[in-house]
Design a binder for these strands. Structure first.
Lengths: 187, 187
DNA sequence: TATTTGCCATACCGGTCGGTATAGCTAGAC
DNA sequence: GTCTAGCTATACCGACCGGTATGGCAAATA
């Protein structure tokens, strides 16, 4: 064994910091979360945080980059596992509904970052890459109709906004149905 | 005349404060804007600000309340001036496109507030009222189809998110067309 | 004319922010 | 066994935050 008493799996401090940042930035907001809280939640001191990241901005950008990787894997898996456009879109919206039901949903982390971080910062690069990825994956879901993908994404984002503005959970189902109906319309 | 030299129209400090808050909160963000900057932009001292508002939270809530009033008047006017559902929806999306073109668009102020302010605060009341108003007005635009209104609003919110995430201006036009097409679909 | 009201200016409060400096410890690699 | 890298702990920095206190001035009201 790597450690005499084997008390912990020895996760590198950097990984713990990113995991803590992801939780806190997403649940409490980026600006509302100080670097000190990120460090303490990762059971690490602030000095260690600044040994691993140049600045809070860099930590934010890497948090979003990690989220982009996860979101990409998720959508790729839907494209892999679900055989039809209908089922793919359903899976996408149902995941959102599940998150809402379980109290895990606090808005799209990329949309939130676009609000909380100045437009100039490195974080916005991740926001734009995320949108491009979504368009590409949804386009693939529906068989290459790029203009339809754009509308489906708008419905999806709109549903998330609605959930943060007091809408009932059935709003997601109606957005899902509309996006599926959209498949059969010309254009 | 009300003032001997008539140097200024004598706008009350409270109005100037709200106008300054609206500009700064919307353009730079709520958390990024300190009360001192609001006061100085209103050509007023911080003491005067706190003579007119109990706290920054109250200032935020009144800023949103003012925005709600303005947004309501705008949508009512569209319903009054435009004769058909198509023209009403077009007017709505075109206004957004105009704001983007003129560089006046920085996201939906209510969606941004929902991100920047803790869910518990008084500001969230305005956010929910704003969504309810939008649903009511859009429903009126399209002749009372409430479920269609919800989808049109989702498309509208989605288009705004898209604009903050690097989308091209033509995205708004496609969302507009889709919302109009939605009028002719059954359901 | 006397009083009140609204705004002025300034200075201050405790707290938190992002970020840095110093110094010591410990474990793995050579 | 020695060295190095990565972690620990603590203390500090200047800047800004929201909010308060004091005191004075000018104009409208009575």
């Amino acid at each position: 064994m790597t450690s005499p008493t084997a008390t912990a799996p020895r996760v590198p401090a950097r990984d713990r910091l990113l995991r803590a940042a992801s939780e806190l930035f997403y649940e409490d907001g980026i600006n509302a979360t100080g670097v000190e809280r990120v460090a303490s939640q990762a059971q690490v001191t602030k000095a260690t945080l600044y040994n691993n990241f140049r600045s809070k901005d860099e930590l934010i950008a890497e948090y979003l980059s990690l989220g982009l990787t996860a979101a990409t894997a998720w959508m790729e898996q839907i494209n892999r596992d679900e055989p039809t456009p209908q089922r793919r879109l359903s899976a996408m919206f149902e995941q959102l509904a599940d998150d809402v039901r379980l109290g895990r949903f606090h808005g799209c982390p990329f949309a939130s970052a676009a609000v909380e971080v100045p437009q100039s910062k490195a974080a916005m690069v991740q926001v734009r890459k995320h949108r491009a990825m979504q368009l590409e994956q949804i386009s693939q879901m529906v068989g290459g109709h790029e203009s339809k993908a754009e509308l489906i994404l708008a419905l999806y984002d709109g549903a998330m906004i609605a959930m943060k503005s007091g809408a009932g959970a059935d709003t997601i189902g109606r957005a899902r149905d509309a996006s599926i109906q959209l498949l059969d319309t010309p254009g």
